[in-house]
Structures are given as structure tokens and as C-alpha cells.
């Protein structure tokens, strides 16, 4: 039986959640999750992002791709942190935009999400961040990630 919006909101309200929180959430919940992206509580909208990222469905991916422009930084931070749940080929364009975001938190978690399977544009952006980001911890984080990916010198 499909969940109601309140059932889904309640399921996603764990204070210190674990992965079980997403049990039973699938393609049929995509329209409700899209509604929760407008929730007045930013953390609930963020939970909807994480739930969508765990549903391998083109509709979910389309919604997530649109969320790179969400006005709430908390939502974009969640998107950056949930990119690791997407197929690399699906994540490249999203990740590229998030690495270029004006919000420090978004860039911080986007850097952490980069993997060896992402494309050359993503890796080039990572190198740009290492050299040019105005925030020292972001430059350091990009440097660490490049080292982890074996894309920088010793």
C-alpha cells in the first residue's frame, strides 16, 4: 500500500538516523518525496534528497538534477553528500555544478563525494579548487582528495 505524506514524513523523522530509515521507500514514493523538498524544515527536505538518491529511477534523478539550484544551502549540502549513492555517469553533471557552488558546505561535501569513476571534468574542477578556492580548508580538502585519487604529486 502506498504511503501517505504524513507516514513518509514520520518515517524520515529519525533524530540520529541509520540506513534502515529508508526501508520500503521506492519509486512509488517519488511524488511525495518531491513534496517534502518544499518542507518548511530544511532537514526534512534534506532527508527527501537522500531518499531520492537511493531510488534508481530516472524520475528521481531528474528531480535531483534540478535541486542543484535549490535556494536552500542545506538541501544542496544534502545533495552533495548523497551524490555517492548515484551511478557515476549520472552524477558527473550534478557534481560539477556542486563543486562550483558558492556555498562552502556544498563544495566541502561535493569534494568528499568525488570518486575515481567520475569524469575528467570533475577531476579538473577538483584541481581548480585545490589551486584557487578562496577558503583554505576547501583547498586542503581538494588536495587530500586528489592525493587519494592519485592525481597529484607527492
Amino acid at each position: 500500500m502506498p504511503k501517505t505524506l504524513e507516514e513518509l514524513r514520520n518515517q524520515l523523522s529519525a533524530i540520529e538516523p541509520d540506513i534502515d530509515m529508508f526501508d520500503g521507500i521506492g519509486p512509488s514514493e517519488i511524488p511525495l518525496l518531491e513534496q517534502l523538498l518544499q518542507d518548511e524544515e530544511a532537514w526534512m527536505a534534506s532527508r527527501a534528497i537522500f531518499a531520492l538518491s537511493r531510488i534508481p529511477d530516472p524520475k528521481a534523478l531528474a528531480i535531483l538534477s534540478h535541486e542543484v539550484s535549490d535556494p536552500r544551502p542545506e538541501v544542496k549540502v544534502a545533495l552533495a553528500a548523497s551524490v555517492k549513492n548515484l551511478k557515476s555517469s549520472d552524477a558527473n553533471d550534478i557534481l560539477l555544478k556542486l563543486l562550483n557552488d558558492t556555498n562552502i558546505g556544498v563544495r566541502k561535501f561535493a569534494i568528499q563525494a568525488v570518486s575515481p569513476n567520475h569524469n575528467v571534468s570533475v577531476r579538473e574542477m577538483l584541481k581548480n579548487l585545490e589551486m584557487q578556492d578562496p577558503i583554505p580548508p576547501i583547498r586542503d580538502s581538494a588536495k587530500d582528495k586528489l592525493r587519494e585519487l592519485k592525481l597529484s604529486g607527492p
Binding site: I15, E16, P17, M21, W43, R47, A78, A81, F109
Partner: peptide, 15 residues
């Protein structure tokens, strides 16, 4: 803080 990111999702609180 603005957001808390755990290994699997975002958290509301963490002690």
C-alpha cells in the same frame, strides 16, 4: 549548525 551529515544521511542531533 546548519546541517549535520552522517555516513548515510543528515542528522537532526548528535550527542
Amino acid at each position: 549548525v546548519a546541517t549535520m551529515i552522517s555516513n548515510v544521511t543528515s542528522a537532526i542531533g548528535c550527542a
